[in-house]
Design a protein around this nucleic acid. Structure first.
Lengths: 232, 232
DNA sequence: TAACTGTACATTGTTGACAATCACTATGGA
DNA sequence: TCCATAGTGATTGTCAACAATGTACAGTTA
């Protein structure tokens, strides 16, 4: 009965601002709203068929997710990726997700770990199926990291990573198709991390996660510096 | 002198939402709006003499600063401190500020370090003057940490610590007068951290900062568990 | 008495109009 | 030609009224 009242929560009883928020989120992440795009309030409001009120609410949240930047009386823009800032982000990720892996090894329940291994096996299959296609692998990789983050059971850590930092990471990944060059390596690294968590070796899990992200960072740096030198 | 510019900026050409934001911030941090207080929009709007529009904007930002929590169609409440969550926060701080100290040792300019040592000496004087008074010491401690955080020159790290996490830390400190019991110890720890940064020893700076925050956490845990057992 | 139901009230979500501010252009002067 | 400045248009900030939702209370029924 209480479920009957809440079953409609699927999409019926959310607020307008929430609905539009997710739409704009995906638009930014997928690149439909490219970096640096000026956000015109009444234009966007008209696009989504809502008033400026809820739109501004959505913009406010997007700002807290670092997906857009706002200047008073001037307006909002989709955040633009600077290589140095991206490297900074990776370094913070390295530390925080390393911590998450350590805590996950300590605090995950056995069932949590079971789910994690199941996810890994699912990746193994899909990876064999679509070798070059990095799209799903990327989303799967995010799921992997997400499970470990939540497995840490540290609320501040979870919020910081999933709310404050991860949206912009998703954006970057989607638009740069980050892991295309090293999917097999990344997959092996995932497996080792899980093994460390299974054996409740927090220290090792932290070390491996740090290396995993560090490798991704270096890979990214090389790609982007090469890219920017071509542009010039 | 940065505080002087900050003061004038408050009333110059900021938006209404901004002005009210800072007012509510301090109200929450100082405890004028106690933990768990329901936030009534039109009531607060009337209090500050503004409309509900800018007030909702301010609430939105307070939410992103973790000072209040919101439920759609129900309302907003001032966040209430749970001991476990506070410990979680400290642990994340430990890792991130440790990282900040390491990066500060690597990236701070000589002038940055000069300012840092000047701050320390200022603390030394004021500490001798007002032994028991923890008020200023707390704010000074925050300045110390703030300088090191910004000294890391890592934008993501700076934003995460100063915007996403530090407001709630300030709230806790102010209301629980955290460091009253160990001001001298804390001061010595500060000095050693600075020495490590001066000698550009990032590893040592990180270690010392982690210990410094860890000690504060343990101190806090003991105080709060004692407090809660008394309440029961 | 306890639980359920429906109604009335209070609060939040949404809207469109109005005011304040900024960016751009053109005009004038040096 | 260049710079400064004032005017114009567009955009954001603010407001007050309206709609939708949740909450509390009263009344009814088992």
């Amino acid at each position: 009965m209480s479920q009957a009242s809440k079953k409609s929560a699927t999409k019926a009883t959310t607020t307008l601002a929430d609905q539009v928020l997710t739409k704009i989120q995906t638009a930014i992440i997928k690149g439909d709203l490219p970096h640096g795009t000026k956000i015109n309030e009444q234009e966007l409001a008209a696009t989504y068929g809502i008033s400026r009120g809820p739109l501004r609410e959505a913009i406010s949240r997007l700002e807290s997710q670092k997906l857009i930047e706002r200047i008073p009386h001037v307006g909002a823009r989709v955040v633009s990726l600077d290589i140095n800032e991206l490297v900074d982000l990776f370094k913070v990720r390295e530390v925080l997700e390393g911590m998450a892996a350590r805590l996950a090894a300590e605090n995950m329940t056995d069932q949590d770990i079971t789910e994690l291994t199941a996810l890994l096996e699912k990746h193994e299959q899909s990876e064999q199926l679509q070798q070059g296609e990095s799209y799903y692998q990327d989303e799967g990789d995010l799921d992997f990291h997400y499970l470990i983050i939540t497995g840490s059971k540290n609320k501040t850590l979870i919020n910081t990573l999933t709310i404050d930092l991860y949206h912009i990471i998703r954006m970057y990944r989607f638009q740069c198709s980050a892991e295309t060059t090293r999917p097999k390596k990344a997959f092996k690294e995932h497996r080792r991390i899980i093994e460390a968590i299974q054996s409740r070796d927090g220290e090792l899990a932290e070390l491996l996660m740090k290396r995993h992200i560090s490798a991704a960072r270096i890979n990214t740096e090389q790609r982007l510096t090469a890219l920017s030198s071509v542009e010039q």
